[in-house]
Design a protein around this nucleic acid. Structure first.
Lengths: 334, 334
DNA sequence: TTGTACGCGTTATCAA
DNA sequence: TTGATAACGCGTACAA
C-alpha cells in the first residue's frame, strides 16, 4: 500500500491542502489538526514523493556529478569533497563515471538534465562538447571540475593550478642539477587540460633555465601503473642520458618506480623521480616520492560552491585555480 | 522556454498521445507524422522529463548507492564495479557517502526512497538499522555490499569472504614461523562485519595451530594512515615480543609500515607485515607488501546483479562471499 | 491510425 | 484557518 498525502488527509479527515501546509509550514494550522496530522505521518512513516515535488517546483535539490574516470585517490578525493559540501548544503548527488566514453557522457548529461538536476559538475573527456551549448543556452548551470574544455569560457571552472604544478616540479629537478628530464603522462589523444598544462609548465621551466625542450623526452601512455611502467622502460632504453623523470599523475608515478626497480636503476642516484598528485603510500615507497600536491578535497568543495553560485546567479563565471605545494621527500635526492 | 511533449505536439499539429507513441514505440504511427515528430524532437533537442515519467510509471531506472566511507581504493573499486554494471544495465546511480554518520545515513535512505529509486545498494554503518524494516515491509529492494548487518538476513549481501581472508593471512604468517602476531584494525564501536570477520579468521587460524589468542595483541584505531601508525607504535612498545602484524585494511597497513620505518625496525626481519585489500603502490613500497586481495571490482559487479535480481524477484536473498587470494610479496620474508 | 481525458503526488491560487 | 481546484509533464484506456 502506497502512502500519499491523500492517505494521510483522508484518515485525518482533512484536505490534502491542510496536510501540505503542515508539512511545509506554509500556513498556520490549528494545533489540534496539526497534531493529528503529524502523528499520522509518523505512524505511516510517510515521506513526500520527491518526484511529484520536483515536477511542481522545478527544483530537485540534487546535483549531477559526471567524471570521466575514477582511477586514483586524486579523483576520489575530489568526489569526496564535492559530496561533503553537497551534504552540508542539503543537496543530493547523482554520480556517474563515464570511463572516458564520450557517447555515454553525452547520454548521461542528457539524462541528468531530464532528471531535472539543479545543476551539473563535469570533469569532461575534453572533446566534442558541442552538445553543451544547448544546455548553456537553456541556462542550465554547469561547472567544470579538474578538467575543462577551453572552448567554453562561459562555464565556471575549478581545478589545481596545473601549470604551476608542472613548473614547480621541473624547477625542483633543475635545481638539483638535472638537465635531461623525461616526462611521463597519460594518453594525449584528447586534449586533457590537466595533462597539457602540466606539460606546459614543464617546458616553460626548462626554457626559463635555458635548457632545450626535447619532444622526444615525453612519453604518453595509459594512465595506469602498467602503462607507466612500460613507458618508463621504453623511454629510458631510448634515452639513457635521462637523469630525472617527471610523472604527471599518481598511477604512472607508481609504474615508473616499479620500472626503475625492475631495471635495477637506483632512485634518485641513477634516475630521480618527481610525481604529481600524492597518493597515501607515497611516503613509504622505496624511495619516498617527492610530489606536487594538488589539494583535491579543496577542489571538490570549491567546485560545489561554484555550482551553488552558478545556480543562484547564471552570470557567475569564475575560473579558479587552486595553489599547489611541493612535498619534498627523497626521490629527487634532497 | 521549456520544451515539453505539448510543444512538440502543437508544432507538429498532432496530439501529445501521438508524440508519446512515437517516443516509446507504443503504437504504429504513420511514417509521415513519425518523421515530422522525430525531426522536431531533434530540432528542439527534446528529452522527456524523467520526473513526470517516473511519477507515471513508478519506476525510475535509477538505483541508490550508499556507502559509509570512501577512504581507499578498495571501496573506490567497488563503487567502480557497481557503476560499470549499472551503466551496462541502463541504470543511473544516486551515490552518497555518509561518512559513517548514522543520522545522515537514515535521512539519505529516506530521501532515496522518496526519489523512487528502484532499489538500494547499501554499505551500512552497521548499527541501528531498524528503520530498514519498514522499507523491507514495503518490498523495497535492498542489498548489502561489503559490510552488512547480521540482523537482516532477508537482505541479500555481496562481499569478500573476509573470514577466509583473515584465516589465510594469519596462516601464512604462522607458516613462516611467527607465533606472536599482532593485529591492527579500524575502530570497533560499531560491529563492522568486514573487520570482525577478518578478526575471527585470525583467531581461528591461531587456534588451529595451537597458538594462544591474546586479546591484548589487537589494536583498534582510526582506519587511516595516521591511525595505523600510532596504533602500531603503541602496540609494539607494549609488546616487543611481537614478530608479525596483520593489518586488516589498506590505510592502516601503510601506517604500520610508516611506523616501522620511524622506529627503525626492519621489515620483515624484525617485524613481518601482511595486509588486506591491496592498494596500487603495494608492490613498490619498502618492502613490497604481501596482501590478501579482495576482488573489489567483482564485488561491485556482483552486488549490482544481486540488486537486479532482487528488483525482479523480491524473494531473492542470496548471501554471496567472493573468494580472496594471497598475493605474496616481500613483507613476510618469503 | 489518432485523439480525448484522466491520473500519478505535489503545491499554489483563490475562495470560503 | 481550511478546502476545492488547477497545474507540473507524461502514459494509457478508451473512444473515434
Amino acid at each position: 500500500m502506497k502512502i500519499t498525502m491523500k492517505t494521510i488527509a483522508q484518515e485525518a479527515g482533512v484536505s490534502v491542502t491542510t496536510v501540505s501546509h503542515v508539512i511545509n509550514g506554509t500556513k498556520k494550522i490549528s494545533a489540534e489538526k496539526h497534531k493529528i496530522i503529524t502523528d499520522l505521518i509518523k505512524k505511516y512513516n510517510y515521506v513526500p514523493n520527491s518526484m511529484a515535488q520536483s515536477l511542481r517546483n522545478h527544483s530537485t535539490k540534487t546535483a549531477g556529478l559526471v567524471v570521466s574516470s575514477f582511477p586514483d585517490s586524486h579523483v576520489t578525493n575530489i568526489v569526496n569533497g564535492i559530496g561533503r559540501r553537497a551534504q552540508e548544503a542539503g543537496y543530493n548527488l547523482l554520480f556517474v563515471n563515464t570511463n572516458e566514453n564520450e557517447e555515454y557522457e553525452r547520454e548521461t548529461i542528457h539524462l541528468l538534465h531530464s532528471k531535472m538536476v539543479d545543476g551539473l559538475i563535469l570533469s569532461p573527456t575534453s572533446s566534442n562538447l558541442t552538445y553543451l551549448q544547448k544546455l548553456i543556452d537553456k541556462q542550465f548551470p554547469i561547472v567544470f571540475v579538474n578538467r575543462y574544455d577551453t572552448l567554453y569560457d562561459q562555464i565556471p571552472r575549478v581545478g589545481a593550478n596545473n601549470y604551476q604544478a608542472g613548473f614547480d616540479a621541473t624547477t625542483h629537478l633543475i635545481k638539483h642539477g638535472h638537465q635531461e628530464i623525461g616526462l611521463v603522462c597519460g594518453l594525449r589523444k584528447n586534449y586533457i587540460t590537466t595533462t597539457e598544462e602540466r606539460i606546459k609548465g614543464y617546458k616553460e621551466a626548462l626554457l626559463k633555465h635555458n635548457l632545450h625542450v626535447n619532444e622526444d623526452y615525453l612519453v604518453a601512455t595509459n594512465a595506469t601503473v602498467e602503462g607507466g611502467k612500460r613507458a618508463t622502460k621504453a623511454l629510458l632504453a631510448k634515452h639513457p642520458q635521462l637523469t630525472a623523470l617527471f610523472c604527471v599523475n599518481d598511477l604512472t608515478t607508481i609504474g615508473s618506480i616499479e620500472a626503475l626497480h625492475e631495471m635495477e636503476l637506483a632512485c634518485p642516484e641513477d634516475v630521480a623521480v618527481i610525481g604529481c598528485g600524492d597518493f597515501e603510500a607515497a611516503s613509504i615507497i622505496d624511495p619516498p616520492v617527492t610530489t606536487v600536491r594538488l589539494a583535491p578535497e579543496t577542489i571538490g568543495i570549491t567546485a560545489f560552491d561554484a555550482l551553488l553560485s552558478k545556480i543562484n546567479n547564471n552570470d557567475y563565471c569564475q575560473h579558479i585555480e587552486l595553489p599547489t605545494s611541493l612535498l619534498i621527500r627523497k626521490s629527487c635526492g634532497c
